[in-house]
Amino acid sequence: MIEKIGQVMLYVENQAAVRDFWVEKLDFVVVSEEVVNGEIQWIEIAPTKGLETSFVLQNKKKVAEMNPDMNLGTPSILLFGKNVAELYETYKNKGITVGDLVDLPIGRVFNFADIEGNYFAICEK
C-alpha cells in the first residue's frame, strides 16, 4: 500500500545553479547533498526541513546515460502556499519569470520558471 509521496525527481542540466535558484530566490532549504569524488550526485531540497515531500535534483545527462529510454521532462507540479498575491510580487521583484496571477475556482494561481526554463505553478491554499 502506498502511503505518501516522498520525493519528486527533477532532471536538470546544472544541479548547483538550480539548487541556488530554489534556495536563494524561493527560500527552500537543502535537506541533503551527496557529493562523490568532488562531483554532485544529487541534491535534495524542500520548502522547510522535516516535510514529507521534497525535490531531488538529478543530473539529466548522467540519468540519460544510465537509462536512455527514461522521460527526463519536468513534471507538471502544483505547489501550495499562502499569500499568493504577495508571493507573486516578491518573485517579480527578485527577477523570477512569472505568468499572470489568476483567480480560479481552486484559488489564486500563478506559474513561474526556474533558471533552466522549467515551469511550476503555485496555488493559494
Rank of each mutant, 00 (worst) to 15 (best):
E86Y: 10
I77D: 01
I77A: 03
L79I: 07
V63Q: 03
M66K: 15
V56C: 05
K61W: 13
Y88T: 06
L79Y: 13
P68S: 02
P75N: 05
P68K: 15
M70T: 15
N71R: 07
E65F: 07
V84I: 14
F55I: 09
L72T: 08
E89P: 01
L57M: 05
N59Y: 01
K82I: 03
G81F: 09
Q58F: 11
T53E: 06
E86C: 12
E89Q: 13
L57D: 02
N67I: 04
T74A: 04
L87A: 02
G73N: 11
E65W: 06
L57T: 12
I77G: 00
V63H: 01
V56T: 15
L72R: 12
V84A: 08
V56Y: 09
D69P: 00
Y88S: 07
N83P: 10
K82S: 01
K62P: 00
K62Q: 06
G73F: 04
V84L: 01
N59P: 04
I77K: 02
I77W: 01
P68I: 00
F80E: 14
M66H: 13
Y88I: 03
K61T: 02
D69R: 03
A64C: 05
K61R: 10
M70R: 15
A85D: 11
L87W: 10
S76V: 15
T53A: 09
N71F: 13
E86K: 12
